[in-house]
């Protein structure tokens, strides 16, 4: 499950970077492109960080259970 979440987060970051650097933006749409690209990047990075720290917390719980 976490691997799927990590994959989706990375894909969202990739989408954001694509819109930011490679998409040929019409001049009338630079504002919405700015918002959407950064939105995807922030969401993706947030998703990756949540995934990493979530794993750590679960690892701690499992270790605690094993020790008991």
């Amino acid at each position: 499950m976490r691997q799927i979440m990590l994959f989706i987060s990375m894909a969202v970051i990739g989408g954001g970077l694509y819109l930011k650097f490679f998409y040929d933006v019409p001049d009338s749409q630079t504002q919405i492109n700015f918002f959407v690209s950064w939105f995807f990047i922030i969401l993706g990075v947030g998703g990756v960080l949540v995934d990493i720290f979530w794993e750590k917390s679960v690892d701690h719980e499992n270790r605690d259970k094993d020790e008991l």
Partner: peptide, 13 residues
């Protein structure tokens, strides 16, 4: 959900 995750979610929002 530990404290770090909550902080990250709040930071993202």
């Amino acid at each position: 959900m530990n404290r770090n995750v909550i902080v990250i979610l709040i930071g993202t929002v």
